[in-house]
Simulated scan of single mutants.
Amino acid sequence: MEIEGTILRGHEFEPIEGRVVVEDGEIQAIEESATDAERIVLPAFVNAHTHIGDSIAKEAGGGLSLDELVAPPDGLKHRLLRAASHEELVAAMERTIEFMRAGGTGAFCEFREGGVEGVRAIEDALAGVPVEATVLGRESIEAMEVSQGFGASGARDADFEREREATREAAKLFGIHAGERDAADIDAAFALDPDFLVHMVYVEPPHLDRLESEGWPVVVCPRSNLVTGVGLPPIADLAAHTTVALGTDNAMLNSASMFREMEFTAKLTGLSAHEVLRMATINGAALLDTEVAIETGNAARLCVLDGDSHNLAGARDPVRAVVRRAGVSDVERVVLPSTGSDNS
């Protein structure tokens, strides 16, 4: 397969006019040459924090507080999840996964409610889909054992010491929500030595210093934080101290569109388009121990945009156009390594 256009190469997204050659799911060559093709070829997105089981209840709970919406065990989403059948959960998650794939997402990290049964449900939803999922079980050590790790709700809910130790012994990923409602649970989350933290809306200067010294990455979900009324994370401050990735969080509250998350983040923070695109691709991939950069020898995880769409035609800066203007309707095709071919 050969794809011509402007290729955003490497970790710095250097715009290369030419073509990328893909064979057997791998990038075989990136060749500079004159081309009339108007495509923009960028790395597939990595959605670093999702709760897609909540797809059964999109836009439910308007006007409720964060605790009323999602606090375990009796927040609205947990009641709705318990009431849903396995088949209903799988069908709803399948549609969100397909929406993510069609919108250029090649990998995501899911905090999966429902214990072992919840993990099995998302495995069924992922069957035959070329999107790479890192599923972190919740609610039990057994759920961690059948998934890729453990996703803790937050240190205010439990101490999670047993779960952390079991996850460490299993050499799996441990992530935890922290600093979403206030700063009170951040130090307790730090004490667990997590592989990464989610939200960190109420991070304070000593926490920033600790993040930098320990190297703990943070996943921010600014649209979700806005919707739930908890405030907005200091993304620029976080990015100055540690690796920051983007996630769309709860499918009940937000579409799983990385385009929307990037645009919101860029316009909210004033961070450069390159920095925001890195948060949506390279940084999330590093957190999940994978690679999405467009480089020879890497697996082909590509999102190809129609640069001549009504929305993108005339754009002078391809990276800025991707981050601040592009949307799902501009996606021409998505190439992922499990098939090594066009997955559009």
Results as ranks from 00 to 15, higher is better:
107 A>M: 13
183 A>R: 11
275 E>W: 02
254 N>W: 11
49 H>F: 05
203 V>P: 05
133 A>S: 13
74 D>N: 06
210 R>A: 14
249 D>T: 03
316 R>E: 09
122 I>Y: 01
147 S>L: 12
225 N>Y: 07
209 D>P: 15
55 S>C: 10
10 G>Q: 01
334 V>E: 02
135 V>D: 01
170 A>L: 02
293 A>C: 09
135 V>R: 00
137 G>W: 08
195 D>Y: 14
180 E>N: 07
319 V>A: 02
54 D>P: 04
104 G>L: 07
58 K>F: 09
327 G>K: 00
113 E>K: 12
338 S>A: 09
193 D>G: 12
282 I>A: 05
38 E>H: 02
28 Q>T: 10
122 I>C: 01
255 S>Y: 10
16 I>Y: 04
151 G>F: 06
324 R>S: 15
300 A>E: 05
156 R>N: 04
284 G>Q: 15
188 A>D: 08
153 S>W: 06
165 E>H: 00
235 I>G: 14
321 A>T: 00
19 R>L: 07
237 D>T: 14
135 V>E: 05
95 R>G: 07
51 H>D: 03
223 R>S: 13
115 G>P: 04
64 L>F: 07
239 A>C: 02
310 H>C: 05
149 G>S: 08
318 P>R: 00
309 S>C: 01
71 A>P: 04
290 T>V: 11
157 D>S: 04
152 A>Q: 02
241 H>N: 12
305 L>T: 00
226 L>R: 10
84 A>C: 06
115 G>A: 11
78 H>I: 12
215 G>C: 15
248 T>L: 08
230 V>C: 09
209 D>K: 15
93 M>T: 02
205 P>H: 09
73 P>M: 06
34 A>H: 05
288 L>G: 14
151 G>T: 07
136 L>M: 12
293 A>T: 06
147 S>T: 11
63 G>A: 05
155 A>G: 13
294 I>T: 01
151 G>I: 02
254 N>G: 15
337 P>C: 01
298 N>T: 08
116 V>R: 06
275 E>D: 10
115 G>C: 04
277 L>I: 15
161 E>P: 03
248 T>M: 04
331 V>S: 01
49 H>W: 13
228 T>P: 06
141 I>C: 03
100 M>Y: 13
316 R>V: 01
216 W>G: 13
207 H>R: 14
142 E>A: 10
189 A>V: 09
274 H>I: 15
202 Y>C: 07
